[in-house]
Design a binder for these strands. Structure first.
Length: 189
DNA sequence: GGTGGGATTAGCT
DNA sequence: GCTAATCCCACCA
């Protein structure tokens, strides 16, 4: 079933953990793709110096301060996009970054978009999975409970590893990165 | 097998 | 002007 907006209104770290094993789905004009979420990171707004929302609301991160259950997609390093699910209370600026997916459905389409056939590299990073899923800035602010992009819950109970985040220099001491144990689709350094 | 540089843009100092 | 929640490829060992 599609996760309702009330799901996203829980604690951000709780949402980050519960999203592991769930299925991210996009239905675009050129096809449908599904990926199992295997790696997430929590960004806790005002107490997290690594979060975009730490220094307050700007034009770019405005979505992050909006109601939970929406997609916050941002452009980074000139070439890549990252996708977050807005969580917590409206106005706080919390979100869960989806870092890695395991390809499930629409794999040929993902391979075409990524121009590679290596499954373990198809969605093993935030910049790659947005490309594979066909996620564009047009979906920024999209409702995650709608019919273009949404997340399906799963009844499995995966073993979760909790660790510190990577790729950042500030706030690195917080154990807010979560991934499913023994998974070859996560972005390993 | 590991490292370093380049692409390119919004926002901060 | 500098930095960033990135990825890819060339180069060196």
């Amino acid at each position: 079933m599609i996760l309702p907006s009330s799901f996203y209104q829980q604690d951000t770290t709780k949402v980050a953990k519960k999203l592991l094993g769930a299925y991210l789905v996009t239905e675009l004009p050129d096809g449908k793709t599904v990926g199992r979420i295997v790696e997430t990171e929590a960004y806790l707004g005002c107490i997290d110096p690594a979060a975009h929302s730490f220094r307050g609301k700007t034009l770019r991160n405005a979505i992050m301060f909006g109601p939970a259950g929406h997609a916050y997609i941002y452009f980074i390093y000139g070439m890549y996009y990252c996708i977050n699910a807005v969580t917590g209370k409206e106005g706080v600026g919390e979100a869960v970054l989806i870092r890695a997916l395991e390809p499930v459905e629409g794999i040929p389409l993902m391979q075409k978009r990524r121009e590679t056939d290596d499954l373990s590299k198809l969605c093993s990073g935030p910049g790659k999975l947005t490309l594979a899923m066909g996620i564009s800035p047009k979906l920024n602010g999209a409702d995650l409970t709608g019919n273009i992009i949404y997340i399906l819950s799963s009844d499995e109970n995966p073993e979760i590893i909790e660790t510190t985040r990577i790729g950042i220099t500030v706030g690195a001491e917080h154990p807010w990165r979560f991934y499913i144990k023994d998974n070859k689709f996560i972005s390993q350094p």
